[in-house]
Design a protein around this nucleic acid. Structure first.
Lengths: 178, 178
DNA sequence: ACCTGAACACCGTTCAAGT
DNA sequence: ACCTGAACACCGTTCAAGT
């Protein structure tokens, strides 16, 4: 039976379509996602109960890279440098995937970042813990602090990105130093 | 002729209704604004061309207090302390008026904060200028940097506000010190 | 079981008719 | 001139019918 693989393929096609469309300017229309994925609107809803759930799935895929990177950086660099590099990667990611981040509503983001911290929270716990253990970072900040402070990335315009983001990350990092 | 004053009253009623409703949870529905203001939907559109324009008017009203405060603080306090107090007031404002800020879309905010910097930009120019002239603040940050970094305020949940916001403002201020 | 797409619901916006 | 509110447009979501 090839039906089962159709289901898998549809789900992937929907996510691919959503990822492509969310990067384009303007709102993400679910009808456009279904059309681009080559499925009916109902099929989209079979896989993702509502708009939030689709965005959440998209977002979770995107975040995994950053999570994996944190572990590597902690091993290979001193804590402050690890955090600096991770911020740079977060920014690079936000630049390309900004559409996803901006499209994810607060409710989804809050859910992902607080409930058992989420994967992203665990990555940040590692980075912040290494820094405070080494005595170079404040020890009174938690992962959600950093996630909140990073919200500015969702609001930087493309034209000003290169000038402004390195400076803003520098300010943020300076604020986290002990 | 009392008609002219009706126009004024309607505009004020619409803004009052919008201010009240934006503070409530959930999206701001323009039909609800018109209903609460006691006017027809068309009247709302006579005064404000679209949703953005209504939010912009609301936002501009809200921001004036902060602008006035900046001048006073610069006169009465040393630069770092002036900025610290202004941040605290910005946060207090965001807490109460958070609905307005969150409802204002990026396009509106970007427009307000970049076009000749806007009133808020001027207030921040004063605060940052005083600090960098006194040699206590970085001199490479501009008002929009601070506006961007303040976006976290729009995403803090009510329950965590008191614990988290003072710490985040402290991190932000530390990052701005020279 | 899964899929399709027409139909429904909701809300921003417009406009014909009223004063 | 200004106002009203029904009507229209758009898009998220549902569901009857098809495979």
């Amino acid at each position: 039976m090839a039906e089962r693989s159709d289901v898998t393929r549809n789900r992937a096609a929907i996510l691919d379509a959503a990822r492509a469309l969310v990067a384009e300017p303007g709102e993400l229309r679910l009808s456009a996602v279904a059309k681009r994925a080559g499925v009916g609107q109902g099929t989209l809803y079979r896989h993702f109960a509502d708009r939030d759930e689709l965005l959440r799935a998209l977002y979770e895929q995107e975040i995994d890279t950053l999570v994996a990177l944190a572990a590597t950086l902690i091993e290979e660099h001193e804590p402050t440098e690890a955090l600096r590099r991770w911020f740079a990667q977060l920014a690079a990611y936000a630049r390309v995937k900004g559409g996803v981040i901006a499209a994810v509503e607060d409710s989804v983001w809050a859910d992902l970042s607080t409930r058992t911290h989420g994967k992203l929270g665990q990555a940040l716990t590692g980075l912040l813990g290494a820094g405070s253990a080494a005595g170079v970072l404040r020890d009174d900040v938690d992962p959600r602090d950093v996630i909140l402070l990073s919200w500015f990335l969702a609001h930087v315009e493309a034209e000003e990105w290169e000038v402004r983001v390195p400076r803003l990350l520098d300010v943020l990092l300076a604020g986290l130093l002990r």
